[in-house]
Amino acid sequence: MKIQILKEIIQKKSSKEKFAVLTNLINGNSEIFEFGKFLSKDFESSKKEIENYHYLKKNGVIDGTQIFIQNYIKPIEVIIVGAVHICQYLVDLFKNLDFEVKIIDPRKYFITTERFPNIEIINGWPEEILKKLQTNSNNALITLTHDPKIDDPALRHALKNKFFYIGALGSKKTHIKRCERLKEAGFSEKEIDSIHGPIGIKLGGKSAPEIALSIVAQLVSETHKL
């Protein structure tokens, strides 16, 4: 592989583009593939199959050819509302997983770079911040404040924009009340049921790092259902 291809992959990955790297296993040539891009003669005869594998995000040697395709997909963006204690452990656990993380909290004393170094933090109300971000089904939302005036607008935004994962921290009682408010706001039962509440898989633990682990486990498991 040429150095310039390696550098291009690094650059494209950091700008979160969707692309694939093709390698001709007979002569060792590699090139970058994107939908609609012109292919060199090493690959052009298998254009249809390449497009199909890329569409299906399938890595491997394309059937009947000597072409290896490796797909790079956009990482999932996780938005966390509430820069609380659990959030610090969440950030730690996310470090080794391929997610992009943003934290939103309107409370200045929670959302500081001292508490959250090396991570994107946004001080403001979720309602206003989320409107400015581009969000879609590639997003996940985790709400941690269990304060309706902070969490609810974020939940409404996530439901409207079809986030693939929505989880809300809070007891069963809190969650029942939350569901009632969302029903009043006009969301269907199916939409409301898609919220993971109380958030996380059942581990039995109640400490902040244990809750964080149960949330990450649930999110990862949902990712693999996509």
Partner: peptide, 18 residues
């Protein structure tokens, strides 16, 4: 996130090449 903390395989390759 994690840019400073987590170097990918290809990024490490680039460091060695340089």
């Amino acid at each position: 996130m994690n840019k400073q903390l987590k170097r990918t395989v290809l990024e490490q390759a680039n460091v060695w090449i340089e």
